Simulated scan of single mutants.
Amino acid sequence: MNILQALFFPPEQPGGVSSMVPYIQERFTKKGWDMELFSLPKRIRGKGTEEVAFSTFDWKRYAGTPVVDKYIQTYKDYLWWTRMRIKKRYDLIHAHHPIAALVMKQLFPDTPLLMTIHSSFERELILNGRIAEGGPEHSFLTSIYRELEDKANQIITVSASFKQYLSDYMQDPDKIGVIPNGFDERRFRPSNHENAVPQLISVCRLVPAKGLDTLLQACSELKRKGHTFVLHLIGDGPSRTELEQMAVDLNIYEETIFYGYMLHPEEFMPFFDIFVLPSRAEAFGSVFAEAALCLLALVGTNVGGIAEQIENGRNGLLVPPGDAHALAGVLEKLMQDPSYRYNLARAARDKAKKTYSMNRVIQQLTKVYEAYRVHA
């Protein structure tokens, strides 16, 4: 069976999806499956000129806004690149981005299309202050879900909470499957270490949706109360300058290290103590499972896929989004009680190994793929 994994970002780009799919390919290749990866290089911009039309809505109603115009141009670029590069047929196409899915179905209408929706672009844009909720860009992006339902043979998402979110925009949400992300234990492994000063780490894109402003405020409160710590922030993004200035203003710049983008944060993660990411929304939150496999205590917000991974008080701690005082309180508790911290981390690792293993993902995907083998 010949399968194409259609990504948007190249595999070397940051993010759980792009970094996870090559490991899926590796596992299936070892099993004797024929699987290839395809993506749009970052340098391909403004090349496509072919007209775009959707079957379930008229996108031109929303034209003239920067987000929509960029989205449509990216669709044209992906279409241009795909026409030029793919000359063979596949038995199944598994897409991991809406543009990839819709382009592939347009060019290969007779090939079964499986679509995994990993996250909500519109929610991220709203939380990052780039579009208004209920505005034309929001309406355009949520209309894409209905188009995907119309075009894809099967839709999968990564958490029950995100399935519930998608159900508001689809006619038959019961057909949405859930396959949580999986992680290769060879990449994320604990390391024995003892830190005299608690080491906190967060790994994410530096944008408002990730709630790092709340984290810095919480850390400022911890310092005012006399606690010592180091906060390691791995990632880059448009909010970096603002966050660095915020750390200065809150008098925690000396305690905070801004690393910028790092290709393999898993090489550093096992040497820290507490993973904390107070996201305002998260479809799944792959980095929590990654941190759990590295035996870190987890602190997150009770939103989306984070709340499905963390059972509060059992394998991590949850706080409301945007609540710096509550966040400072749970961090203080973990910093002061290493035994409690270790017990939470061990429970988190046990759950991650059982629930979010790559083996489990391969088994679930195999069943899905096998259902299309009879059509190959």
Rank of each mutant, 00 (worst) to 15 (best):
T65N: 14
T49V: 11
N343K: 13
R349W: 02
G134I: 10
Q171G: 07
T228W: 10
A328I: 10
R187C: 06
W80Y: 13
R280Y: 12
I144K: 08
D249F: 01
V276I: 04
T111N: 09
E147I: 08
R314L: 09
F188H: 03
P98R: 00
V103N: 06
M170C: 10
S159G: 07
A352M: 12
H375C: 15
M84V: 14
T74L: 11
I310C: 04
P278R: 00
P265C: 03
Y23K: 12
L79E: 08
M335Y: 06
P208E: 06
I3M: 05
D323W: 05
Y165P: 09
L277Q: 08
K210L: 07
A283T: 05
A292P: 01
S202W: 12
G322C: 02
S120T: 15
H138P: 13
V299N: 08
M170F: 03
L263G: 14
T29H: 10
Y369W: 09
K42M: 12
E149Y: 08
S139C: 15
P41D: 05
S286Q: 13
K105I: 01
N195V: 04
D184M: 04
F28C: 14
V68W: 10
A218H: 05
E267P: 04
M1Q: 01
Y90S: 03
F9E: 11
Y78M: 09
L277C: 14
V203C: 03
Y253G: 15
D168N: 05
I3Q: 09
Y78E: 07
P208H: 05
V103K: 09
S119P: 14
A289I: 07
E282G: 08
R61T: 15
A371V: 10
S19F: 03
D273A: 03
M115Q: 04
I24F: 03
E266T: 04
Q217G: 12
G313A: 01
A209M: 11
S119N: 14
I179Y: 00
D77A: 01
E267T: 05
A196K: 14
F162W: 12
E242F: 10
S18V: 00
D172H: 12
T116F: 00
T355R: 15
S357A: 14
G182I: 05
W59I: 01
G48H: 02
S18P: 00
Y75L: 10
D172F: 11
I306H: 07
I257E: 08
A281D: 15
Y71W: 13
